[in-house]
Simulated scan of single mutants.
Amino acid sequence: MAAKDITGESPAHVAIIMDGNGRWATARGWPRLVGHRRGAERVRSIVEAAPGLGIRYLTLYAFSTENWKRSTEEVIGLMTIFARYIQSEAQRLSAEGVRLRFIGGRERLDKKLQKLMAGIEARTAGNDRLHLTVAINYGGRDELARAARALAEDAAAGRIRPEEIDEAAFARRLDTADLPDPDLVIRTSGEMRISNYLLWQSAYAEYEFTDTLWPDFTPDELATILSRYNRRERRYGGALTA
């Protein structure tokens, strides 16, 4: 069933922690990688539904800096899934006006995967219907450390004075420098933690936690969450209005 369009004040930027792929597969007696492949298929339906739900920016947590601790088989399988997703979706994303880019450290990724990532970023750079960002080898603390290091290097080189370092200067060194902060962060699978995701950017985001495992997360459930979001009052530290 297609999700109904949202007519209220929908969040412009939604970030999702796509959790539960492995458990989804294990519950069915299948290898964990089957769940990850099904999760990649789920991305397509959510991306297709996002513009009709009023979402202009969609950021997905695909692989964290901590995920390298998983088995070699699972890590290699995940990297293969990422590469196949880029190859299979490049034409469709480009045709549908989706701009795809990636955040996170790339130096540890396979060179071929890095090339595919750079290629699709260049191919879709002019698109503006939906800004899709995928976090691969991403960790919020790592991102903050890299931003601090960049500022320190700029200060040491005389490109910036210490007194000029403020929140705006710091934000410009983040991976998401040209993206708005997320309005809403969703985590699937029932876990109620943020797992080192967009720590700076989500300072004033609203959160939603759902028990649904990512492969079962539908556009209709997303629409329901957005409806709840529309009824919230975001005060950014201010007082509740009458």
Rank of each mutant, 00 (worst) to 15 (best):
Lys111Asn: 03
Arg84Leu: 09
Arg129Cys: 04
Leu151Ile: 11
Ala49Leu: 06
Leu144His: 05
Ile136Asp: 00
Thr65Asp: 01
Lys69Cys: 01
Thr65Glu: 02
Ile46Asp: 10
Ile46Gln: 08
Thr133Leu: 04
Glu153Lys: 15
Arg70Glu: 14
Glu153Thr: 15
Tyr61Ala: 12
Ile81Gln: 10
Ala157Cys: 06
Arg146Gln: 12
Leu144Asn: 08
Glu41Arg: 13
Ser45Cys: 03
Arg99Tyr: 01
Thr65Arg: 07
Leu109Arg: 04
Ile160Val: 13
Asp128Ser: 14
Gly54Thr: 11
Met79Arg: 00
Ser88Leu: 02
Glu164Val: 11
Ile136Thr: 06
Lys115Thr: 13
Leu33His: 10
Gly105Pro: 04
Asn67Pro: 03
Leu58Ala: 08
Leu113Ser: 15
Ala40Asp: 06
Tyr57Asp: 04
Arg106His: 05
Gly35Ile: 04
Lys112Asp: 15
Arg106Lys: 11
Pro51Thr: 07
Leu151Met: 02
Pro51Asn: 11
Ala150His: 14
Ala145Leu: 14
Asp154Phe: 10
Val134Asn: 11
Asp128His: 08
Ile160Ser: 06
Phe82Val: 14
Lys111Thr: 14
Ile103Leu: 08
Leu53Arg: 07
Ile76Gly: 00
Tyr85Glu: 00
Lys111Asp: 15
Thr80Cys: 00
Gly158Arg: 07
Gln91Cys: 01
Thr124Val: 11
Val75Leu: 05
Val47Gln: 08
Asp166Tyr: 03
Gln87Glu: 15
Gln114Phe: 12
Asp142Pro: 02
Pro51Ile: 06
Trp68Val: 03
Gly52Ala: 14
Ile103Tyr: 05
Thr72Tyr: 04
Leu58Cys: 06
Phe63Cys: 12
His131Ala: 15
Gly104Thr: 02
Arg56Val: 00
Gly158Gln: 11
Gly97Phe: 01
Asp128Met: 00
His131Met: 07
Glu74Asn: 05
Ile81Thr: 15
Phe63Trp: 07
Leu144Arg: 05
Val134Cys: 12
Lys111Cys: 03
Gly119Ala: 15
Asp128Arg: 04
Arg123Ile: 04
Ala147Met: 04
Ala50Leu: 04
Ala62Asp: 06
Gly126Ala: 14
Gly140Tyr: 00
Leu109Ser: 10
Gly97Pro: 05
Glu163Asp: 15
Glu107Val: 00
Thr59Gly: 15
Ala40Thr: 12
Ala150Met: 09
Ser64Thr: 00
Ser64Glu: 01
Lys115His: 08
Arg106Gln: 14
Arg92Lys: 07
Ala150Lys: 15
Ile55Cys: 07
Leu113Asp: 13
Phe102Cys: 06
Pro162Lys: 04
Arg38Cys: 12
Asp166Val: 01
Ser45Ile: 01
Asp166Phe: 10
Leu33Gly: 09
Leu53Thr: 03
Tyr138Gly: 12
Arg38Phe: 02
Glu164Cys: 11
Thr72Ile: 07
Ile46Lys: 07
Leu60Gln: 10
Leu144Glu: 08
Ala95Tyr: 02
Ala152Glu: 08
Arg99Gln: 14
Leu58Phe: 03
Leu130Tyr: 00
Arg141Glu: 01
Val75Thr: 09
Thr124Asp: 09
Gly97Asn: 14
Tyr57Lys: 02
Glu164Gln: 15
Pro162Trp: 12
Glu163Phe: 05
Asp128Thr: 10
